[in-house]
Design a protein around this nucleic acid. Structure first.
Lengths: 237, 237
DNA sequence: AAGATCACGATTGTTAACAATTTTTGTCAA
DNA sequence: TTGACAAAAATTGTTAACAATCGTGATCTT
């Protein structure tokens, strides 16, 4: 059910006719999540049309959708750019997560039967594997997805959506303000959180999560921004 | 420079007809919030084009935006309909609010200097006035807006957006499942919550809010749905 | 040369015609 | 009357041409 079930039809340069606009959205979304598309990168319509083999209409719709999710910034008559959160927005994101995520985790720990332990354990295994092999983009994506999957465990559509949005934005922020070394979640904190949930320790789970978020935030340098980059067509292969 | 108003067919209800698509979104949004547009109402493109005096493109963009907010349901080749939450979704909405809103209120109560007391007090006065005069749509809208404004007091963009979305959905749900009498928030619970916040009683504020939400939810009859309706052009004047 | 101005090219925004699909309507047979 | 079927109308989806705007580079003035 996760976006892995797609057979490979994205090998060629000109994909002809299987591009629902949601595919475009997802592709760009993933590229941003994995920090392959840097903030401020321009997403020209013609460029996207070519890379996806799609008419302008689809591209424009996709861009509108992405802008409504805050992933791209739509400047009138000037085109679409990958969103570039500033300091204030970064703080807002973390504040929002601090507010929302603890209750989520706490509730999960109170009723851990709801969670799919196997799935989450598997996920952490993947994370560790990626970390062991130093696969940067994978690590980043999986780190974020852990939090999303946690939210998904509540079975609540809205909670999931909110968390997804916040996690995406966090990814952008970490990419922008992340000070070299620690570009994602530290080693085994995810594992510890999951353990606390599974062993029904709400307070501990909450505590661990909070310190986890603090940890991520403290790894940022709010004064230095990385610079743009990215050349589009190659990135979205 | 700025978007010019277009000389077009708006011979009927003249309505500030310089229609940026955000205006269309807002108009429909408000109509849904005030329960003037019933769930399942069809929003035909041509109809909206006429009522807003706008080309099809703007309308389609607006509908896409609204669908991304879950306010309208976009069925392929069949057009746009006002969203019609089912039982499960209704439960999700309240569960999400139960999860998110208490921490928000609690935090506000811990730092009440952040809130704009005058604004919120004024708002409650408006609510009471509307209640006194039995202005149904006003009551409904203001009841929802109180919660939105509360979230807004955090100064957090994301918290505000989330709450706004949940409140909108709540409005739809109350319209659908609301059992006649109590179609909105009960009398002075808002006032009590605000008081608790202002006098720095986080726990009490949280408690009041929770019981407030329970109160709203218990006023619903999850088994009987109101039926469609609505004729469009007249409603959006 | 530095700076301003203007024209050109490239990109985005809009409109209108066209194609595809669904819904309605009309007809006929059981 | 009811049901099935088919043509017609209405609605949505798509494409392509057209218009407006922005960025860039050449030209001109001081």
């Amino acid at each position: 059910m996760t976006p892995k079930s797609q057979p490979s039809s994205r090998d060629q340069t000109e994909t002809t006719a299987e591009a629902d606009e949601s595919v475009i959205v997802e592709r760009i979304y993933n590229a941003v999540m994995e920090q392959r598309l840097a903030p401020r990168t321009k997403l020209s319509e013609s460029g996207l049309c070519e890379t996806f083999g799609v008419g302008r209409m689809r591209v424009r719709r996709a861009l509108l959708l992405l802008s409504s999710q805050g992933i791209v910034d739509l400047r009138s008559n000037r085109g679409a750019y990958v969103a570039c959160p500033d300091k204030a927005e970064a703080n807002d994101v973390f504040a929002a997560r601090m507010l929302i995520e603890p209750p989520v985790v706490k509730q999960l720990a109170q009723n851990p039967s709801a969670i799919n332990l196997a799935l989450l354990t598997e996920h952490i295994a993947l994370e560790n594997s990626a970390r062991a092999q130093n696969e940067r983009t994978k690590i980043i994506r999986l780190s974020g997805e852990f939090h999303t999957k946690l939210a998904q465990s509540t079975g609540n559509k809205f909670v999931t959506r909110m968390m997804r949005e916040l996690v995406t934005r966090t990814s952008l922020i970490v990419g922008l303000f992340g000070s070299s070394s620690n570009t994602s979640c530290p080693d085994d904190e995810h594992s510890n959180i999951l353990d606390a949930i599974h062993s029904q320790k709400p307070d501990q789970a909450e505590k661990l999560l909070i310190s986890h978020l603090r940890h991520i935030q403290s790894g940022l340098d709010m004064d230095a921004r990385q610079e743009p980059q990215s050349d589009l067509t190659s990135i979205l292969g």
